[in-house]
Nucleic acid binder design. Structure first.
Lengths: 239, 239
DNA sequence: GAGTGGTCTAGACCACATC
DNA sequence: ATGTGGTCTAGACCACTCA
């Protein structure tokens, strides 16, 4: 029915599927057509469709649900930096993390950000955000978003922001973050961070620079998070 | 020919293959039999064998070589902690990292180590090791190895150790490390670390605790590495 | 029970590495 | 040229989800 291009293998199918996601034909969080119907549509065997889907599932673009459907991933959710803090370890687990938007403004592109993100945009949405636990500020975050794509956040009031940003990106801007790269470094706390966190300037601080990627593998967010180094414990897997 | 057990799916095949690796029937770094011969041996279709192999390849146990063979992984090699240091970034890249074994001894199991590794052994091989760049000490490492398995390292002289430990584990003890979990934290440098690194006690320090896993997914090494926090930059991917 | 993804088969042909 | 892994097919049957 639809297969317009010359067919050259399941990788081409994966590309075609990706294109549908990008075009919005397969919306974020929604189910894609069944394997059987795709096989018919593209004129290939079921196994070939399955191989293409398996690859995209592996990359985190699609999520398979046995007996139900295969869906377009709606991205990361519980990946907050807050999980690296070891405050109140013995305390009750019922702590509700809070988020407070301090400021939102538009700024011109900065060179250092363009360098790590490869963004060619001219202006950025810069969001200043505080993360708290039991009303105590733990993380001072600065978030940079490319403006064409995230313009719907531009006019929002701080109170209209949700606690978790990634799910909010999906709803407000149709962007799903499925992968990120973190850089964890150490520094002496700068005045601005110290003020926001109610700590002393020069106190040992941890700084995490994160670049987040969407379903197409393109960088969609740059974030810098600063907190108390002595209470931070980062964990990661190495392969 | 060999299929002794009741066959219940490709996951059972994966288990059987893993068992062969563990038993040494398929030696580390060596090629396993061809897919066709395995299909015949186990009395299943080629595709089923391929699925089992794909799973183990995904887990890092096997490595596929198109046109050649599928091999048992010989593990990580270039995963040194030294890669997180940003000394002489503009300098020539030709820096040869060095490693110096300071001390080797046998110690009784420590509770905190048993807690994170689940080891039930009674004694450990404790290796004190220094990592240097241009003769400058950057990392002070303490490595704990369970003793039955690593007894062949016990009698070695410091000079007989190689620069990279993981490849050495393969050769000397038939253990391949294919995965690890890192925990990155900050602390004020303790006297012993400061002395080893030629720094001042109380200087900001980074500490990485690592648990390394072998082909069977079992923890085989616990390591604690301390360095100058100001020169450290850890990077990781988030999924 | 209908529909979906998961497993398996038997066989064909392609792509790569090696001699 | 031979042997290995990689791709694809067409069809069967199983396992899970949900109305």
């Amino acid at each position: 029915m639809a297969g317009n291009k010359t067919y050259r293998g399941y990788q081409d199918l994966a590309v075609a599927f990706r294109a549908r996601v990008e075009a919005g034909a397969w919306p974020i969080g929604g189910a894609i057509p069944s394997e059987a119907s795709l096989a018919e549509e593209f004129g290939v065997a079921l196994g070939t469709i399955r191989q293409a889907i398996a690859q995209l599932a592996q990359e985190g673009v699609l999520v398979k649900r046995h007996g139900k459907s295969t869906e377009v991933s709606s991205g990361l959710s519980g990946q907050s930096m807050l999980r690296f803090f070891r405050y109140q370890l013995d305390d009750h687990r019922q702590l509700v993390p809070q988020a407070k938007i301090v400021a939102i403004k538009i700024v011109p592109m900065e060179k250092r950000i363009a360098a790590v993100t490869n963004w060619a945009f001219k202006s950025l949405l810069k969001i200043h955000r505080l993360r708290l636990l039991k009303d105590r500020p733990l993380l001072n975050e600065t978030i940079y978003l490319p403006l064409p794509k995230f313009k719907r956040l531009q006019g929002l009031k701080p109170s209209e922001f949700e606690e978790l940003l990634y799910p909010m990106y999906v709803k407000a801007c149709n962007v799903a973050v499925i992968r990120a790269k973190d850089q964890v470094g150490f520094e002496l706390m700068k005045r601005a961070d110290a003020k926001a966190l109610n700590m002393k300037e020069g106190h040992p601080a941890v700084r995490v620079h994160r670049v987040a990627f969407d379903l197409m593998g393109k960088p969609v967010e740059y974030r810098s998070s600063v907190g108390d180094a002595m209470a931070f414990e980062y964990s990661a897997e190495v392969y």
